[in-house]
């Protein structure tokens, strides 16, 4: 009995001593600022910054010696200011962004013509055919973006079959943008008080064909381009695009669109609402 106790203790002590020396020998000396930077980062490891996780971002910022090209979309300007303070550098300010779904092809607007039977991933369906509605650019509604979102900022609306972005959770990490095989989701300026205007369609087909599949498709008529006083709208391949850097949110284009493809978000309700409830699948979650 006593021998067992003694020998166990001896093994314990010897192992501890060995471990101590090994730990000393193989100690990794690291810039302590890496830990400090890592501390202020959100720790979600979403990869939105372009690095393999927060730690990697911290290491890279410390190593680089300036913050040019470094931006944590999740933490935003506050986090970057903290990082800058730790490193004694100047942070590059960026306007807050938010993900935007540029498709309004809901079940009502773009009714299904075919039935897809297979694993529910947009990526596969995209390889296979143009989608249940027949629109080769529109949302497939199988939720690859929702699966990619790490911040619970998206869900599929069962009624419209389209993804919805929960604005206050969205960190603009861009995971959904890369997940979408049709590049429907775009990161756009959040805008003052969340107000923004965008073309909710990415269909590049000719107007008549696009309209055949979807009631709210951009038909490339160009009316919005003409009416825009700030040259913010461009027309390319039968598709209008509003440059958020130039858009002054005057809303002149919204009523002009014959198919209600231009959406305005977070504007106070007006007496005469142009966009019907139906063409506004991107209901704002507050």
């Amino acid at each position: 009995m006593i021998y067992a106790v003694i020998s166990l203790c001896a093994i314990g002590i010897i192992s501890a001593v060995i471990l101590y020396f090994v730990a000393q020998k193989f100690k990794v000396i690291e810039d302590p600022r890496i830990d400090e930077v890592n501390e202020v980062l959100p720790g979600a490891n979403c990869g939105g910054c372009g690095f393999a996780g927060c730690r990697n971002f911290a290491e890279s910022t410390v190593k680089a010696g300036n913050l040019e090209g470094f931006f944590c979309p999740v933490g935003g300007n506050t986090t970057m200011a903290q990082v800058a303070a730790i490193l004694g550098l100047q942070a590059v300010e960026k306007a807050p962004m938010v993900a935007v779904v540029r498709c309004s092809g809901s079940r009502a607007n773009a009714p299904s013509k075919y039935r897809f039977d297979g694993p529910a991933t947009c990526f596969f369906a995209h390889q296979l055919f143009s989608g249940e509605s027949g629109c080769p650019y529109g949302c497939l509604g199988l939720g690859d973006c929702v699966a990619a979102c790490k911040f619970d900022a998206m869900y599929m609306d069962p009624e419209t079959g389209l993804p919805v972005i929960i604005e206050e959770n969205c960190t603009a990490c861009g995971a959904c943008v890369t997940a979408c095989p049709r590049s429907i989701i775009e990161l756009r300026n959040k805008g003052p008080k969340g107000k923004r205007i965008f073309v909710s369609c990415v269909n590049k087909e000719k107007g008549a064909i696009a309209r055949k599949n979807c009631a709210v498709a951009c038909i490339g008529c160009g009316k919005c381009v003409k009416v825009c006083p700030h040259d913010a709208i461009t027309m390319e391949n039968n598709l209008a695009y509003i440059d958020f850097a130039k858009c002054k949110l005057c809303r002149k284009c919204v009523p002009e669109c014959p198919t209600n493809a231009i959406l305005e978000i977070n504007f106070p309700l007006k007496k005469e609402k142009v966009a019907g409830a139906e063409s506004k699948p991107e209901a704002v979650e507050v």
Binding site: G118, P119, T121, F123, F124, Q127
Partner: peptide, 12 residues
């Protein structure tokens, strides 16, 4: 199980 569907995605 849709094995081939997944494998196709994998191949791409």
């Amino acid at each position: 199980r849709p094995l081939l569907d997944y494998i196709r995605v994998g191949k791409i």
